Amino acid sequence: MKKEDVFERYSRQIFIEEIGLEGQKRIMSAKVLVVGAGGLGSPVIQYLAAAGVGTLGVADFDRVELHNLNRQIIHNENSVGTLKVKSAEVFVERLNHQVKYIGIEEKIDQRNVEEILSLYDVIVDGSDNFSTRYLINDMCVKLRKTLVYGSILGFSGQVAILNHQGSKNLRDLFPEPPFDEDIPDCDSLGVLGALPGVVGSMMAIQALKIITGLPVHLNQITLIDTLKWRFQTLDF
């Protein structure tokens, strides 16, 4: 893409004083891994690709199902039955072909987590189970990687920046993971489709702020209650 085309495409970001040309260059050279191409991953992938993130890795081993479509907005009816990473690749290519997309068609586990995470600057966790969340968190601590954390259920969500420049991590917030089978999830209690759009967009903003070197609030978690319309930030 020619320089003038780059400016035209990203001008509304470049016009922001705190970002400018230098910030856009940082975005275009950044390597971000999004774990999960579902409810949270969808808006994260959408906005990071739109912002021009240079390399966008997406890890997911699931296939698109019809019930995903109320919230997983990068997929569509034609995607049902296909791998989510393949569907996400089509979306990203149509939105911004300059983004280098890397689809990781496997479950992140003890065997591959270090190899996968080590290739990226920022990790955005949109996974849907505690075992994966803690595995990713612990590897981010080991590799000194910044982790953007989010979760959703019903009308509620959470967002936090973890392990950024020595800040606290998930185990400082929740020392031990609960048993997944004891925790309600979207499959059992549901989720309003627009909620992951709100929470995922917040996660994307945090990732872009980190990439561009803007100040972020650390050792805090933001609690989002869209039913009562309350937003609360707690220190930990």
Score class of each variant (00 low, 15 high):
143 L>P: 11
107 K>C: 00
71 R>I: 01
48 L>W: 05
228 K>W: 02
59 A>L: 12
18 E>H: 05
235 D>H: 10
19 I>C: 10
113 V>G: 10
144 R>S: 15
218 L>R: 09
214 L>P: 09
213 G>R: 10
121 D>Y: 11
91 F>H: 03
162 L>W: 06
175 P>D: 12
232 Q>A: 14
24 Q>D: 03
27 I>H: 06
212 T>L: 02
176 E>V: 14
196 P>I: 06
98 Q>V: 00
189 L>F: 12
204 A>D: 11
96 N>A: 06
154 G>E: 11
51 A>W: 03
54 G>Q: 06
74 I>S: 00
132 T>P: 11
67 H>N: 07
223 L>N: 02
132 T>K: 12
76 N>G: 15
89 E>H: 03
193 G>T: 02
20 G>L: 12
134 Y>M: 06
60 D>S: 09
197 G>K: 08
34 V>A: 08
147 L>K: 03
202 M>V: 10
78 N>P: 02
174 F>V: 15
96 N>K: 06
188 S>M: 04
177 P>D: 09
111 R>Y: 12
166 G>M: 12
61 F>W: 11
167 S>Y: 02
18 E>G: 07
220 Q>M: 13
17 E>N: 13
226 T>V: 13
207 A>Y: 08
92 V>M: 09
52 G>F: 02
55 T>N: 11
57 G>F: 12
211 I>A: 06
181 E>R: 12
2 K>V: 03
148 V>C: 14
37 A>M: 09
161 I>W: 10
29 S>W: 02
123 I>T: 03
169 N>L: 00
9 R>C: 09
27 I>E: 07
190 G>Q: 01
32 V>P: 04
110 Q>D: 13
156 S>T: 14
6 V>K: 07
218 L>M: 11
38 G>E: 00
67 H>G: 03
34 V>R: 07
140 C>W: 08
60 D>A: 11
87 S>D: 00
212 T>S: 13
91 F>E: 02
49 A>C: 10
41 G>C: 06
12 R>N: 09
163 N>M: 10
144 R>P: 06
110 Q>W: 01
208 L>C: 07
13 Q>I: 05
179 F>R: 15
214 L>R: 14
235 D>A: 06
39 G>Y: 03
163 N>W: 11
